Amino acid sequence: MARLTQRERRDRTETALVAAAAELVVESGLRSMTLARVGERAGYSRGIVNHHFGTKQALLEALAHATQSGFVPGVDRFEPGLDRLLAVVEGYVGALGDISVISRAFLLLWAESSTTPELTDLFRARDEGFRSRLRADVEAGIAEGRVRPDVASDDVAVTILGQLRGIGLQRVLAPDVVDTERLRHVVADQWRRALSR
């Protein structure tokens, strides 16, 4: 068995720490997530958490970034436009069917960001990045002639983001109520009909 490089060991440790942070957020909320508890949960000391992240804020940022990357697998194969936008909508709702601890932590932190100053800017930036990609898809769809020209890309982006996050929170709070397999097609079809020429 080959020995891990220093970079591989570092990545493995950071992944374990972020996963531990997500578990604590889901189990007990943000306020109970301390660097010491994260280290203990991951099987390390608090010192290793400080070494890798330095602050709770840096760890929260790593957690927020880790949860969003790859949430909708395969979407990168689409060019910007209506097909990619619909793939994002359908994929996002579908991914909620088997929601991971890290994704659940993201949604809980997102909800808490409206009243927690240490999260507000971080999640505002994450949401703006998401809206920006959605806007780009609407604008590309208009340019390619598949989306109605009277559609306001900013309004669509705000509405889709709100809808997806809202469905996500409902899935976290009442998992038996949200049939993601059925709903993914319903929501994508609603947007297809609302946007198509």
Rank of each mutant, 00 (worst) to 15 (best):
E8K: 10
L30H: 10
E23N: 09
I48L: 12
V18I: 15
M33Q: 06
D11G: 07
N50F: 07
G54D: 04
L30D: 05
R46E: 06
N50D: 07
S32E: 14
V38F: 05
I48N: 05
V49M: 02
R12I: 10
T34K: 00
T13M: 10
V49Y: 00
I48D: 03
T55S: 14
R41F: 00
E27Q: 13
A22D: 05
K56Q: 04
R37M: 03
R37I: 00
H51I: 00
T13G: 04
G43Y: 09
A42D: 02
R46G: 02
A20K: 13
L24R: 08
E14R: 15
A19D: 15
V26K: 04
L30M: 07
L17F: 04
L24D: 09
A20T: 12
E40I: 01
M33N: 08
R41Q: 11
V26Q: 08
G39K: 09
T15D: 14
R10D: 14
R46L: 01
V49L: 01
S32G: 12
G47L: 01
A42C: 13
T34L: 01
L24T: 05
T13N: 11
V25S: 04
E40Q: 14
E8G: 11
R9T: 14
E8Q: 15
E23I: 08
L24W: 05
D11S: 13
E8S: 13
G39I: 02
A22Q: 06
H52R: 08
A42N: 10
V38A: 05
G43P: 09
L35H: 03
N50I: 08
R31D: 12
S32T: 14
S28D: 12
L35W: 04
A42V: 05
F53Q: 04
V49S: 01
D11Q: 15
R31N: 12
S28V: 08
R31F: 08
A16F: 11
R9G: 09
T55W: 00
D11Y: 08
T55D: 05
Y44W: 09
Y44G: 09
Y44F: 14
H51T: 02
A16W: 12
A19V: 05
E27D: 14
R9P: 09
E40A: 13
L35C: 11
G47N: 03
I48E: 08
E27T: 10
S28H: 13
S45C: 02
L30F: 06
N50H: 11
R37V: 00
R41Y: 00
L35G: 13
A19W: 06
E40G: 02
L30Q: 07
F53I: 03
R37E: 01
A42G: 12
K56F: 00
R12G: 11
H52T: 04
L24P: 10
D11T: 13
R9V: 14
T55Q: 04
E8C: 06
R41I: 00
R12M: 15
G47K: 00
E8T: 08
G29S: 10
S28W: 06
E14Q: 14
A20E: 09
E14M: 12
Y44K: 12
A16P: 13
H51R: 08
A16L: 15
A21Y: 10
R37H: 11
G29E: 11
R31I: 05
V18F: 06
T55L: 02
I48M: 08
L30W: 07
K56E: 01
V18W: 07
S32Q: 13
V18Q: 08
S32R: 14
A16R: 15
L24M: 12
G43T: 07
F53G: 03
V25K: 02
T13Q: 14
